[in-house]
């Protein structure tokens, strides 16, 4: 199987949305732990060392959420201690923990998605839906760094002409606003020429084709099928109560004997992206060791 990173962008998008949607809808400890771990593993494999801040953020989130929830929620029967005449319950702490873990898992998966969705792929997704939007996105992605560079140049020029002094916050903000205003003039004026260049190359409001270097392969269909079917099954059976978990007033597992199968299915789709990624890395190592 091809990694999500190298798959068709639609496949990457569908898989990640399915996993997070399921995690958000089915709040069971047995499912959140694989979601969190699978997400963390997948993200770490993609981000490497640069993901340190996200890990810290996620850890903080879980802790803070576990501490904050009991302050708002006093449901539950297992009272740990009493604070300001209000009971702090084990159940509320656990719900906070679960919420934090859900959010952390979502952050990991979407963090991975942000790494995977390069601008090309973002465009591909939108290009299929609406070519005009794709063009707009492409143009905006081109203008943003251009504007950044231009605003730095304007600041430097104004400094070198003795017209731009760093002072306190207010005058600093004023100066920045002036630069921003000049930037706007420039961007609009420039934009007209860009628009003319578009028209000169045959752009008009009618239909246009969209070219992108991402073919849709059988492998992508497999990714999409596996994830959408799994998510549908998991969410449906959770909704009709075939398997489940309640927190208030007491933490109890509900549902029948098949619960374990559902957990296993979910764990599988959580770890699959990381596993495929890992397999590919291992194959590289193997190929290099052979030569």
């Amino acid at each position: 199987m091809r990694t999500l990173e190298r798959s068709n962008p639609f496949a990457s998008l569908v898989c990640i949305v399915c996993v997070t949607l399921t995690a958000a809808l089915c709040q069971y400890p047995g499912m959140l732990i694989p979601a969190l771990l699978g997400g963390a593993a997948f993200y770490s494999l993609l981000a490497g060392r640069s993901g340190k801040r996200t890990h810290i953020l996620c850890a903080l989130l879980v802790v803070v959420s576990a501490l904050v929830n009991p302050i708002f929620s006093h449901n539950g029967i297992t009272v740990l201690f009493v604070l300001n005449d209000r009971p702090v319950t084990l159940e509320a702490v656990c719900v906070g923990l679960m919420n934090g873990m859900t959010l952390a898992a979502v952050i990991y998966y979407f963090g991975a998605l942000t790494r995977i969705m390069t601008s090309d792929k973002l465009l591909y997704v939108f290009g299929k839906v609406s070519p005009k939007s794709a063009l707009l996105i492409s143009g905006a992605l081109r203008f943003v760094p251009l504007l950044g560079a231009k605003s730095r140049r304007i600041e430097e020029t104004q400094t070198a002409l003795g017209l731009y002094r760093k002072g306190n916050m207010i005058s600093g903000a004023k100066n920045k606003l002036k630069v921003f205003s000049a930037l706007t003039s420039w961007a609009l004026e420039n934009g007209i020429i860009t628009a003319d260049s578009m028209a000169a190359r045959g752009y008009s409001d009618g239909r246009r084709t969209y070219f992108a270097p991402y073919p849709f392969r059988a492998c992508d269909a497999v990714w999409i099928a596996v994830y959408s079917v799994s998510a549908a099954v998991l969410i449906t059976f959770s909704a009709i109560g075939t398997y489940g978990f309640t927190y208030y007033p007491q933490m109890v597992r509900t549902g029948g004997a098949y619960s374990a199968a559902f957990y296993a299915l979910y764990a599988a789709i959580c770890f699959l992206p990381a596993a495929v990624q890992l397999k590919e890395a291992a194959r590289w190592k193997y190929l290099i060791s052979k030569t």
Binding site: S138, R142, R201, G202
Partner: peptide, 15 residues
């Protein structure tokens, strides 16, 4: 117009 070299090359043909 576009942010990538390949997309810029394809732009006219897309039109």
């Amino acid at each position: 117009v576009c942010d990538k070299v390949w997309h810029e090359l394809a732009f006219g043909l897309e039109n």
